[in-house]
């Protein structure tokens, strides 16, 4: 412990609370408050109502939630498959080869998402493959953006995996494919689910590439939230944002339950 006096500790905690609460806790609390507000002109909202949630859970808004969930599901499955494959393949390469694969798969993190959106728009608006204005392109963009995170967490887990397991399996006569399926993937399962949760959450909140690509019949939740706030319906936007956060948290929670089960077996 760095500070030994009682007074000093309380002073520091007070500073921490003053910095932490308004900066991090307040925004989330305010959004939740606003989502119930019928009216907000003074210090606090008034005329609390649930009608924003009614609006947020039917019609186009409900479609937007479904769209977001489906997009996130598709994107994280693609990202998980591609990222895991690449991470496993990279772990068998030499140092130089692994660096190249690392750099290429982490590149989407560095490129602005808007530019990823623009690039996909430019590439798939002309033959041979025209995907312009399809939901496929949105899912693809999300997959490109989140694959880096899947790759990163799976390759970290592969590095941590004790080679003794693989060798023990091989000494027992298991071929490489059998080792992968029965030993390596089960041992990586906790990391795989963690990566899937992360990809899902990131995809749920993706806005920058989506605004470049989304067709009118495939409008994800963040775009709806933007549209609502932009036309002045801030309280509806807040309710949609709460729905988005709740959905994300629910999925993350479910994934962490799976992960605990997998790692305690």
């Amino acid at each position: 412990m760095l500070v030994h006096s009682r007074k000093g500790r309380w002073a520091l905690w007070a500073v921490f609370a003053v910095l932490f609460l308004p900066v991090f806790a307040l925004p989330l609390a305010v959004i939740v408050m606003a989502s119930f507000a019928g009216h907000w002109s003074g210090a606090f909202p008034s005329a609390f109502t649930g009608e924003h949630y009614e609006a947020a859970t039917r019609g186009e808004s409900l479609d937007a939630l479904t769209t977001s969930l489906l997009t996130a599901l598709g994107a994280s499955l693609i990202a998980l498959a591609a990222g895991t494959w690449a991470a496993l393949a990279a772990s068998r390469l030499g140092k130089g080869g692994r660096r190249v694969v690392d750099a290429l798969f982490m590149l989407p993190v560095a490129v602005p998402s808007v530019v990823v959106g623009l690039a996909l728009l430019v590439a798939f608006s002309k033959p041979p493959v025209i995907l312009n204005g399809t939901s496929t392109l949105v899912v693809l963009a999300h997959a490109v953006l989140v694959t880096a995170f899947a790759y990163q967490s799976v390759s970290a887990a592969v590095r941590r995996l004790d080679p003794a397991y693989e060798q023990a399996a091989a000494s027992l006569g298991a071929r490489p494919a059998y080792v992968l399926w029965r030993v390596k993937l089960p041992l990586l399962l906790p990391s795989l689910t963690a990566a899937a949760g992360l990809c899902f959450a990131l995809s749920m909140g993706e806005l920058s590439a989506t605004v470049m690509l989304y067709p009118p019949d495939w409008t994800p939740l963040p775009v709806r939230i933007y549209a609502a706030t932009d036309r002045g319906a801030a309280f509806t936007g807040a309710a949609l944002a709460v729905v988005l956060m709740a959905a994300t948290l629910l999925v993350l929670f479910a994934v962490s339950r799976v992960r605990t089960r997998a790692s305690y077996r």
Binding site: L26, L202, G205, L207
Partner: peptide, 12 residues
């Protein structure tokens, strides 16, 4: 794990 624009929305 939340999107960045939520912060701006809250600041509004």
């Amino acid at each position: 794990s939340f999107p960045s624009f939520l912060v701006t929305l809250a600041l509004l």
